[in-house]
Design a protein around this nucleic acid. Structure first.
Length: 625
RNA sequence: GGGGACGUAGCUCAGUUGGUCAGAGCGCUGCCCUGUCACGGCAGAGGUCGCGGGUUCGAGCCCCGUCGUCCCCGCCA
């Protein structure tokens, strides 16, 4: 039998009661976390989002409440009415925040029963994520998830407040819109009113926020949902949230200052101080030093070990002497058996035209001097695991071999990237041995305990870094054309403008990425605000006026009506939360995420729709058999 | 599209060379228990070993295929 709530009002939350509340008459409501039945005495741990409180049901004192207590099971929803009392000294539980008190219940109302849950929200996350996601409502009851979403709320709130303080207005832009010029696939929504036509969900509010600058709003921001129909990863979902902002009359440095401020505010809300300003690195240096444009500075970088080898060495080893020869070092891994090394081989991306040497004993046997020099150059201790990565001359890949002065060739980038990926994959695998991530974990844990009121130093746990000086264009091998590496409204450096047509390889883009601990947190740019520059860019891309007008017509119109110099950035909010929650993937900080195969296991989406719906939308489905 | 890991009870897992191997802990159900807080005690229920096919006298174990989850590459500038 279930009881009615009646006009009963909750007076307190479970986790908030302390010794000072002793004697108070209270009404608590929540879920039964655990029940301990001692026969004539029953203990209930009652849980709500604030925490847990022990309810005592004594058969002698309250026979009715005790009878109800016998019926109760895990996750039943109950109301406990009674008095807060101090526990006897020997019954105090220091592991509980409310461990000094308990509720001597006079009445227990069962507001709802519950089926046996497939796993207990009172415990740590189960490994089977399929079950967690299917029963997401149960999973979200777990303290860790409750904490993650409270954290998300606090960080978001702090960032909003900070941006507002910095003079930014939050303005919403459409969800049903037109395809935006980010490179991803669009999610399309068929129009019922306009047969055969489609809206696109925004990949970002890019064009709208630039138009807001033309409209004179000067500083705009939005906590914006974005949609990209691409394959998912640990740090990529189909829909995600960006802290999107744009400002008028900015220099790059002013954008950086704004971001550093609001990010520090967000971190502070999570109990972590983040020193500003953030360091910078050029794209080329980032590739050379880390083999990545989102470097993780917690680990040693790559070392150029080309000088360790003679030309004969390289010839014997079948290494391309024109490409980089780098070493990666994972500290304190110890000596690996042949089997262990072979198990690591799938972590190396074979398709990048690079090869690696991870058998150092063998290398030392054939090339003792080179091997010694490599270890010397990398500064490796005996316990450090060192791998040499180099270009494979035998491996023909689809990449431009052409070397343009002053910038890395595609093949060079590929070798660096192969080394960089290997570095991060191995670092993930041997995290326990090198311990480079431990400080981050400890800081996150400590921050959860200390809270925003008493923030702790994050400088050894979080390594933000600006990546700058990206090349403006990429050489497309198939067409033999230079194509923009970024969206076509990204401004070139004013100093490089003269070379747009004559030497596109040398032109740098005035855009920037922000990375932290191996994650790309965001990217932005100074935009093109002048029609003549925009035309030059289009011309250099071989885009005709007509074509440009068709793709970006309304925006090009807007540009002609008094566009201020402007620029901005967008940061991935989910990724920021993920870092501060100490989560391994975005699903831990998104309430209802999708699986790697883009499925919502709880809602069971996507699904087919009725013929009627399709007809109204003028859509016919043609499945490939 | 490609590579890798995993899939045995509700959950976490063990299962040797193919031969009583259908197992453990937790959870669950029933009974007992007035100071537990991962309560305890006794008893019990619970399995298409992801699915399909093959090899074999015999398959949880070997082979092929397939599905699902996760990680990575491609893709996402």
């Amino acid at each position: 039998m279930l009881d009615f709530l009646g006009n009963l009002e909750r007076t307190h939350r479970c986790g908030t009661l302390r010794a000072a509340d002793a004697g108070k008459q209270v009404v608590l409501m929540g879920w039964v976390n655990r029940r301990r039945d001692h026969g004539n005495l029953i203990f209930l741990d009652l849980r709500d989002r604030s925490g847990i409180c022990q309810i005592v049901l004594d058969k002698e004192l309250t026979p009715g409440g005790h009878a109800r207590g016998e019926q109760v099971r895990s996750e039943y929803v109950v109301a406990a009415i009674g008095k807060v009392r101090l526990r006897a000294p020997e019954a105090i539980n220091l592991k509980m925040e409310t461990g000094e008190i308990e509720i001597e219940a006079t009445e227990l109302r069962i507001l709802n029963d519950a089926r046996l849950t497939p796993f207990s929200p009172a415990e740590e996350a189960i490994k089977d994520e399929e079950v967690r996601l299917k029963y997401r409502y149960v999973d979200l009851r777990r303290a860790e998830m409750q904490r993650n979403f409270r954290l998300r709320h606090e960080i978001t709130l702090a960032i909003r407040a900070n941006l507002s303080q910095q003079g930014f207005l939050e303005i919403e832009t459409p969800i049903l819109t037109k395809s935006t010029p980010e490179g991803a696939r669009d999610f399309l929504v068929p129009s019922r009113v306009h047969a055969g036509e489609f809206y696109a969900l925004p990949q970002s509010p890019q064009i709208f926020k630039q138009i807001l600058m033309i409209s004179g709003f000067d500083r705009y921001f939005q906590i914006a949902r974005c949609f990209r129909d691409e394959d998912l990863r640990a740090d990529r979902q189909l829909e995600f949230t960006q802290i999107d902002l744009e400002m008028s009359f900015p220099r790059r440095e002013s954008v950086f200052a704004v971001v550093e401020q609001f990010l520090a505010a967000g971190f502070a809300a999570a109990g972590v101080t983040l020193p500003t300003p953030f360091p910078r690195i050029t794209y080329d240096d980032s590739m050379r030093q880390f083999g990545s444009d989102k470097p993780d500075l917690r680990l040693p970088g790559l070392t150029d070990v080309r000088p360790a080898f003679t030309d004969e060495n390289l010839a014997t080893l079948q290494i391309d002497p024109a490409l980089p020869v780098v070493a990666l070092r994972i500290p304190n891994v110890g000596e690996l058996s042949r089997k262990e090394r072979e198990d690591n081989h799938p972590l190396f991306d074979q398709k990048k035209g690079a090869k690696f040497i991870d058998d150092f004993k063998r290398l030392a046997k054939s090339f003792p001097e080179a091997a010694a020099k490599v270890r010397e150059l990398t500064g490796a201790s005996d316990a450090d695991f060192v791998i040499v990565v180099a270009g494979d001359p035998a491996h023909h890949i689809k990449a431009s071999d052409t070397k343009f002065p002053g910038r890395l060739s595609e093949r060079e980038i590929n070798v660096y990237a192969a080394a960089g990926n290997f570095r991060t994959e191995l670092a993930k695998k041997y995290a326990d041995r090198h311990g480079a991530f431990r400080m981050t974990e400890e800081t996150v844990e400590a921050a959860h305990v200390h809270g925003a009121a008493d923030p702790i130093d994050g400088s050894k746990a979080f390594y933000p870094i600006w990546i700058v000086d990206f090349p403006m264009f990429e050489y497309e091998l198939a067409s033999g054309k230079w194509v923009p590496a970024h969206h076509p409204f990204t401004a070139p450096y004013e100093a490089d403008m003269a070379n747009l047509v004559s030497d596109p390889a040398s032109v740098r883009a005035d855009c920037y990425d922000l990375a932290m601990n191996g994650l790309e947190l965001g990217s932005g740019s100074i935009r093109i605000h002048r029609k003549d520059v925009q035309q030059q860019i289009f011309a250099s891309l071989g885009i005709s006026d007509e074509e440009a007008r068709k793709r970006f017509g309304f925006f090009l119109d807007a540009l002609e009506y008094g566009t201020p110099p402007h620029g901005g950035i967008a940061l991935g909010l989910d990724r920021i939360i993920m870092l501060l929650a100490g989560a391994a993937n975005l699903r831990e900080v998104i309430a209802f995420p999708k699986t790697a195969k883009a499925i919502d296991l709880m809602a069971d989406a996507p699904t087919t729709v009725t013929e009627q719906q399709l007809r109204e939308l003028h859509v016919r489905v043609a499945l490939k058999s």
